[in-house]
Simulated scan of single mutants.
Amino acid sequence: MRTLALRRRFVLSVALVPVVAAAAWIAHRSIGGGGPDAAGAGPSAGPHAVASAKVPGAPAAQPSEVKTPSAAPKGSAALRYSFDGGLAAPVVDAGGRLPLKVRKVAGGELSAVPHEGGLAVRFPPRCEHYGAESCARAILQSGPADFLNPGQADFSFGASVLVKPSETSKGANVMQKGFSVGDSQFKLQVDGAAGRPSCVIVGTGDSTIYVALASRSVADGRWHRIECSRGGALLTVAVDGVVAGQAAIPPSLSIMNTDPLCIGGKGTSANNDQFVGVIDDVFVTRSA
């Protein structure tokens, strides 16, 4: 009789697993958002976002003593920036394919700061009047970067960031290529007072904004590695190697534009979604 009771208890436990998982998925399925992010518009989010909870049981990332290149995601690395050469000359990626220039307005400045034996880039301080012409802005921007267009292929992009609780804002772009209005795009942002990172993509010829919003904040004054990845019909955001959010996307979604790659903001207009904090190890990887 005891054996039979144990078997019944085991079957009941297994049956409850999909019910709990489904409840968690439904609880995170709806995320509100702002407007489009074309020049002069507010930070983008999306009505079609689907977030998932952080995968439990994974170990926290440990800081390293010496800065080392991160392992390249599967596929062929399109470009990677370490910023270890500083900002005195055009910033070049590891392969020398896409140099970046400093663009600054209203007294905005970038500075190179130490990070794990190398350098990272600190962006202008937070402005009390978000979107005001008087706010200091500064970004890194490339020329046309058509070779980064993933089309319908799987790809990933991301960076390491350090954001203090006092540095969050309405809109804060880590990196972006393209726009959501009349264009296509992919971008990584840390929007909102909570400082939760999100991955955003918009397909060519479709104004729908797809957002994978992380279930956790990175605005704690410590370094975090954020990676966005598109795999078929799924957009995923991972923080420190742990999946923190996902969104369903059309398998046919294609990203193709002639826009530059921007780091730290989408441009230098007043409402440029200026990033506040420090950025390092930016990468974009396309499938082979």
Score class of each variant (00 low, 15 high):
Gln185Ala: 14
Gln185Leu: 14
Phe186Val: 04
Lys187Trp: 00
Lys187Ala: 13
Lys187Gln: 13
Lys187Met: 09
Leu188Trp: 08
Leu188Asp: 09
Leu188Arg: 10
Gln189Ser: 12
Gln189His: 01
Gln189Leu: 06
Val190Phe: 06
Val190Asn: 08
Val190Ser: 04
Val190His: 05
Val190Lys: 03
Asp191Thr: 11
Gly192Val: 00
Gly192Lys: 10
Gly192Met: 09
Ala193Glu: 13
Ala193Ser: 13
Ala194Cys: 01
Ala194Gln: 14
Gly195Thr: 07
Arg196Glu: 08
Arg196Thr: 08
Pro197Gln: 09
Ser198Phe: 06
Ser198Trp: 03
Ser198Ala: 04
Ser198Asp: 11
Cys199Gln: 01
Cys199Gly: 05
Val200Pro: 02
Val200Gly: 02
Val200Cys: 01
Val200Glu: 03
Val200Thr: 04
Ile201Asp: 03
Ile201Leu: 12
Val202Cys: 11
Val202Lys: 13
Val202Phe: 08
Val202Gln: 12
Val202Trp: 02
Gly203Glu: 06
Gly203His: 07
Gly203Leu: 11
Thr204Lys: 15
Thr204Met: 11
Thr204Tyr: 08
Thr204Ile: 10
Thr204Val: 09
Thr204Arg: 15
Thr204His: 10
Thr204Asp: 09
Gly205His: 11
Gly205Glu: 02
Gly205Ile: 05
Gly205Arg: 12
Gly205Asp: 03
Asp206Ser: 14
Asp206Ala: 14
Ser207Asp: 14
Thr208Asn: 12
Thr208Gln: 12
Thr208Met: 09
Ile209Val: 15
Ile209His: 08
Ile209Glu: 12
Tyr210Arg: 07
Tyr210Trp: 13
Val211Tyr: 00
Val211Leu: 06
Ala212Gln: 04
Ala212Asn: 04
Leu213Val: 04
Leu213Ala: 14
Leu213Pro: 02
Ala214Asn: 06
Ala214Thr: 11
Ala214Gln: 09
Ser215Met: 04
Arg216Val: 15
Arg216Cys: 10
Arg216Met: 14
Ser217Cys: 07
Ser217Phe: 11
